[in-house]
Amino acid sequence: MPKGAKGATPLRVATWNINSVRLRAPLLTGVVEALAPDVLCLQETKTPDEHFPHEAAEALGFAHRIITGMKGYNGVAVLSRRPLTVLPDGRDWCGRGDCRHLGVAVDMPGGPVEVHNFYVPAGGDVPDPAVNPKFAHKLDFVAEVTAWTAARGPAKRAVLVGDLNIAPLEHDVWSHRQMRDIVSHTPVEIEAITRWQEAGTWHDALRHFVPPEEKLYTWWSYRAKDWRAADRGRRLDHVWVSQDLAPGLIRHAVLKDARDWVQTSDHVPVMVEVAA
């Protein structure tokens, strides 16, 4: 057990942009077998709540589930082996009702742990909010979340995960030079996600294990004929932990092999284990 985590209980939190939970529910078995998460956060579930595949989740041992979804777009879900409750200060970001965030409390022996599951807007193709409403929405979304985070104060006993659709560091993308004008790695997005992270004094759990000077990706485009050979990836999926949990970080996993699964997502599952 890491220093400072004496008596704490390990908690495995995984995140995956599944890109349609009904289509890819059978792939959840592979995630569970490889990562054995206690809590699994999904993004882009793309289904209204009444059509969520609860039976598949139940069969995998996730007795506790909180979901918010819509037909065809967006949607997030938290599946858990431990009891969950919804946090009281949920928000309708940018007033759109588009199901991009769930905040829950996970019941742990040492006290509840907050888990925030986010799906940040992708932002379209043109990195100019004046001509691209999707990019403007992305920046507005992150700014609103940042203000909310700052108002709540430094995060405590908390984990934030999700497809944040921003790769902030130089080696979070295959080519920093060629990606500077590509949505997800532009200076304005990097500045925005940095402000968000600093507002909650969040600790980047993946970069805790993988130094910033090393390449780290969680997404590879469907457009590449051979994604492994091209390896033009980006780190769009993140796990942040509050400063009080950072000393308890145990290990991480990026399930890169999931990108080879049949009819898989263009994102791969990511897991962090932390003593909480």
Score class of each variant (00 low, 15 high):
8 A>G: 06
114 E>R: 15
162 G>N: 06
19 N>L: 10
159 V>E: 06
106 V>T: 01
235 R>V: 00
232 R>C: 07
156 K>S: 15
89 D>T: 13
189 E>W: 00
72 G>N: 08
38 D>A: 05
169 L>W: 11
124 G>A: 05
110 G>N: 02
211 P>F: 14
276 A>Q: 08
161 V>Y: 03
261 W>T: 12
27 L>Q: 00
87 L>E: 07
136 A>E: 06
162 G>M: 11
147 A>L: 10
274 V>E: 06
232 R>P: 06
54 H>A: 13
138 K>H: 12
83 P>S: 13
61 G>V: 05
150 A>D: 01
255 L>W: 08
120 V>F: 11
81 R>E: 06
243 Q>Y: 00
132 N>M: 11
213 E>V: 07
273 E>P: 04
2 P>N: 05
14 A>Y: 03
124 G>C: 01
165 N>K: 02
233 G>Q: 01
71 K>P: 15
122 A>N: 14
153 G>Y: 03
92 D>Q: 12
150 A>I: 02
215 K>Y: 00
22 R>F: 05
205 A>I: 01
263 Q>L: 11
255 L>N: 00
172 D>Y: 07
133 P>A: 02
267 H>R: 11
127 P>F: 02
31 V>G: 11
237 D>K: 08
194 T>M: 10
210 V>R: 15
44 E>H: 09
275 A>D: 07
275 A>R: 02
176 H>T: 09
156 K>Q: 11
260 D>W: 05
276 A>P: 09
83 P>G: 07
247 P>G: 05
270 V>W: 01
237 D>C: 03
228 R>I: 00
233 G>M: 01
210 V>G: 03
67 I>L: 14
98 D>F: 01
193 I>L: 11
260 D>N: 10
171 H>I: 13
67 I>K: 06
14 A>L: 07
205 A>S: 14
164 L>S: 01
97 G>H: 14
154 P>E: 10
32 V>G: 08
83 P>E: 07
149 T>W: 11
14 A>Q: 05
260 D>A: 07
81 R>L: 11
237 D>M: 07
238 H>Y: 07
235 R>T: 06
223 R>P: 06
208 H>G: 06
260 D>C: 08
33 E>P: 04
118 F>T: 07
153 G>Q: 09
67 I>T: 13
42 L>G: 10
48 P>K: 04
248 G>T: 06
218 T>S: 15
222 Y>P: 04
184 S>V: 03
276 A>Y: 06
192 A>H: 00
249 L>A: 04
276 A>N: 08
